[in-house]
Design a protein around this nucleic acid. Structure first.
Lengths: 204, 204
DNA sequence: CTTTGTATTAACAAAATTGTTAAACATACA
DNA sequence: TGTATGTTTAACAATTTTGTTAATACAAAG
């Protein structure tokens, strides 16, 4: 009998891979078991159902996603423009490290109204705590003619859109625009920052 | 025995809905049959397998996607900036009318290496026919100080990213930023144009 | 009005997937 | 040592999903 150091963790690790690649419907208990190197009964032993296992992972990931935009923006030591640059950069890096996560979240939220409702509330909360202060700062800079006026929500959506899309598109365009993926992504990160700063019309 | 006007078309219509909503793995023959109001054996009668039915629809959709960016850009009557505005706008509208299509294409291309290869070749071809002329025009305007210098491929990716992402994100943020979806999307379309024109640093 | 080919249905079969269980096993600890 | 506890396995069962077929209805052509 093969004893694992920690079967439960192995299963979670394997399941995370499988779900991220194939989504809930495409993932198969047998395939997860194989990846984890365990008998598929173990998955039922530890998690009872496929849905259980999925929910456990999914909720953890949602937490990750919904708390990611704050930190770089909140650090009020630096001037806003610097913080925006850092936010774009760290948001980009976060998605790079979790490049399948947005796709999974979108897919599973669309196919599950209950999850959708919960998620929207989290987003709503995140926006509510982010927007007012950001808008105030943006308005101040705009009044000083340092940037062009913009609604905080548009800025947020512009950033998220640019960063997100490049990773969603990546499997479709890998190798089309550049041979070296790492260089390509680094370049796109800079481009995204450039786009946002242009939108703000920031001088120097 | 219930006779349909055109069973095959009914099945295709229903299958399109189902696949767009749930993806290949999530779609069920029985559910498609129900939507089409036919016995599920009819699906096998007309298309033999689920995969057949899927491929038939998928290839048609790929054709749509890969030919969508051209027309508004190609019309060399107008000045480039106008054509770019129109391209953004019509690309946006196209995705609006096919808001589930990008998600489906990305998902199924990721889970199928053969499809991925074919698609990349199509993209590669589309880029090859689009990029040189566009780059020449962009360089000319940049030399005349009418716009900031930009690589054609970055411009294309910026446009596609902004337009795509808002519809991929839409199910997650519906109702968060605005009550009226139509107004929200119209506003985002304008914002995307504004972002791109700012990036080009176009005066007036 | 019969023949012929296509369309439809229900019932069945096969395959894939998820879930269950009883028995074997490992380990710690009395 | 033996026994209690949690872990693992293989075999099985249930369910879901896909695919097949034989019987039959229907419409059009001869």
């Amino acid at each position: 009998m093969e004893r694992h150091e920690n079967t439960e963790q192995e299963i979670l690790r394997a399941a995370e891979q499988e779900f991220l690649e194939k989504g809930f419907a495409g993932a198969k208990i047998m395939s997860i078991a194989q990846r984890a190197g365990v008998n598929h009964a173990m998955i039922h032993y530890y998690f009872r159902t496929k849905e259980n296992l999925f929910n456990r992972l999914f909720e953890e990931k949602i937490r990750l996603l919904t708390t990611n935009l704050y930190p770089a923006l909140a650090n009020t030591e630096q001037p806003l423009i610097e913080r925006i640059k850092n936010t774009i950069s760290s948001h980009f890096d976060f998605i790079a490290e979790n490049h399948n996560l947005p796709r999974l979240v979108v897919n599973e939220i669309i196919s599950n109204p209950k999850r959708r409702k919960i998620f929207r509330q989290k987003i709503q909360f995140a926006i509510k705590t982010l927007k007012p202060a950001l808008q105030t700062e943006l308005d101040q800079l705009a009044d000083n003619r340092q940037i062009q006026h913009i609604k905080a929500e548009d800025l947020i959506l512009d950033v998220v859109s640019l960063n997100l899309a490049i990773f969603i598109l990546f499997p479709l365009i890998e190798g089309v625009f550049a041979d070296d993926n790492k260089t390509f992504l680094e370049h796109r990160k800079e481009e995204n920052i450039k786009v946002i700063l242009s939108r703000l019309n920031y001088k120097i």
